[in-house]
Design a protein around this nucleic acid. Structure first.
Lengths: 352, 352
DNA sequence: GTGAAAGCGCTAACAC
DNA sequence: GTGTTAGCGCTTTCAC
């Protein structure tokens, strides 16, 4: 074969190198490089010989070595930092990014944060050490100034998704959170509701804060009172969310409608209403769609995000920067869409 | 700063290198290397000076260069090839792999196949060129002999998940597909059903084939006839699955129970039964769980897989191989579990 | 058209 | 303890 078989137990057998291919094809190493990289200026004859040798040896170029030496230093890999690659939102963003990247022969490194800022810095640093060409991030930290050393100074493009940057100027692709939440409230108010409750995740999460703002402003717009006892923040577990719903519905003046600002909270709310047998009595609109929401009884009305559009847009912006295009960083908004399925069209029991 | 500012438009600004750190700290480059890699044998004094210089310059080691030179050639990255990183099964596997990898400071490259063997080879090759330390793959191809050049010869560990290897000896982590399907059939037969239909994805997908085998064998075990008109294969779209259910229920001798061998098929079956108003009349057991299956009416009885356990097991096997452990490749089975929620406990309308 | 030599940023081997 | 030198596999530069 290409070289003498190393003794058993030899460390990490490396594959054939460019010079092995060159030797077999009887050409110089630079000619192999030209053929492998589809550079012009190689006679068809030599090119064929090189290709045959590549085939015969099962040669695979070492992109690490290549990018080390190459002038632009590109690794053809981008980094993606998301809340949790297993949740449907992150997974859809990831897939959309992958699809855009694949068209360009670029691979995607992904990592999950679980709302841990420490993990965010560790992940970003790991990606930096691998010299990812660009970064798409949905940050868990409240300040991304630390990115200066990791990406800004090296002129690595960064695009934020789902959450805006702080302490750093960069493009961001965000859902219309406040507007979507406002639409939910207006929808419920249109159905005759006045006592509309808010159920939300950690307020420190920017999307949750924006959705609460949208809720509050829409309530004011409609001349409705935002009652403290009808607002529950920081519901990050299903249990907490269910408990909040039960507590609210046990009030003397219970809400007749619920707006839940997140996926898992919405599902918890459905579960709580079911357990109380109130699912046809209390209206519900949830932010963010989820699978088979239409098959529940009643179908769950939601303000749907478009995670695929968010991911695609972010990836496209990143690649435009990588192509050398320059512009002032700005926020790009991806529209939400209210999907009526029944739960949001329930009317209050008693007209007021 | 570390060097003169390059002229505007200069190509790809590279960050500070080890020698810049060494110069600033007034030490040799090897000392910096020792500090950066936490190698022993550096005086605390010099180590501190190096660390200060690292901090000051915002130095980030270049892992690509490092692994190029290092004896073991490790890149501290593994490749993960799945059907579709956006579907819940793949996403859960991915997340489990990430968690195991993270403990070891290893990053994960992931890619989706969409049942395309061509894409499988392209992806694997892309990972090989980046010299991933190991590969976890749920193949779409029917033969993975091509992996020889990419991984076997370079002694790169490979672990299969969800689908067994063909044309290659390698570890595989698989759900108990046949057994799970058989359990579903027995469950339905226990409820009194005799006309149990099978609804499945492409038969060329090994998991679908195994589940069909489990179905068939269990039917025979129970002395039940497998009727050709009660078997529908190759249902890869929701539309096809819904059509199949409608067609079966329109038969003179319709099934009284359905076993659907896949997630999306199960949901399509629920949709079809709903549309016909038969959801409380026709029993249903689905293979693979899905979110809020318990909130449907009736709750959907499923044979749940454990994708997190599959991913975790696969990653652990991969890392044991990377640690140099050796054993005969074998299949590792992850148990499925039947979760009764209502739809699978419905009894046939007419006793027979 | 083609290829020899230098060097990307780092670690291995070995000297001090 | 510490530093110097060579070279990982490739692309760049430049000579032919």
């Amino acid at each position: 074969m290409t070289s003498v078989d190393p003794v058993a137990g030899a460390p990490a057998r490396r594959g054939p190198r460019m010079r092995d291919v060159a030797a077999l094809a009887g050409v110089g190493i630079k000619t192999v490089s030209r053929v492998v990289n589809n550079e012009p200026g190689v006679s068809p004859d030599l090119a064929a010989r090189v290709r045959r040798a590549v085939e015969q040896l099962g040669y695979r170029p070492n992109l690490g070595a290549s990018s080390l030496r190459r002038a632009d230093g590109k690794t053809a890999a981008i980094a993606l930092v998301l809340e949790n690659i297993a949740n449907p939102f992150s997974a859809a963003v990831h897939r959309a990014v992958e699809d855009v990247a694949r068209e360009r022969g670029v691979l995607v490194f992904a990592g999950s944060l679980d709302e841990d800022p420490r993990r965010e810095r560790d992940l970003v640093q790991a990606f930096t050490m691998r010299r990812a060409d660009g970064l798409i991030i949905a940050p868990a930290s409240d300040d991304q100034g630390y990115l200066y050393d990791d990406v800004v100074r090296t002129q690595t493009p960064v695009v934020f998704v789902d959450r805006p940057p702080h302490g750093l100027r960069a493009d961001a692709v965000l859902a219309t959170n406040a507007e979507g939440a406002a639409a939910a409230v207006h929808h419920l108010a249109d159905a005759g509701h006045e006592r509309i409750a808010y159920l939300g995740d950690y307020v420190r999460i920017p999307t949750a804060a924006d959705r609460f703002r949208g809720y509050r402003e829409a309530m004011v717009d409609r001349g409705l009172r935002v009652r403290a006892e009808h607002v529950a923040h920081d519901l990050h577990s299903a249990e907490a969310a269910e408990r909040a719903v039960r507590a609210m519905l046990a009030l003397d003046d219970p809400p007749t409608a619920l707006f839940s600002s997140q996926n898992l909270v919405t599902i918890a709310a459905v579960r709580a209403l079911r357990a109380l047998g109130r699912q046809h009595a209390v209206a519900l609109v949830g932010f963010d769609d989820f699978p088979v929401a239409d098959l529940l009884d009643p179908g769950v009305t939601v303000v749907a995000q478009d995670p695929a559009a968010i991911g695609r847009t972010a990836a496209e912006l990143l690649f435009r920067r990588l192509d050398g295009e320059r512009w002032e960083p700005r926020q790009h908004r991806v529209e939400t869409r209210l999907i009526a399925r029944g739960s949001g069209e329930l009317r209050p029991a008693v007209a007021s």
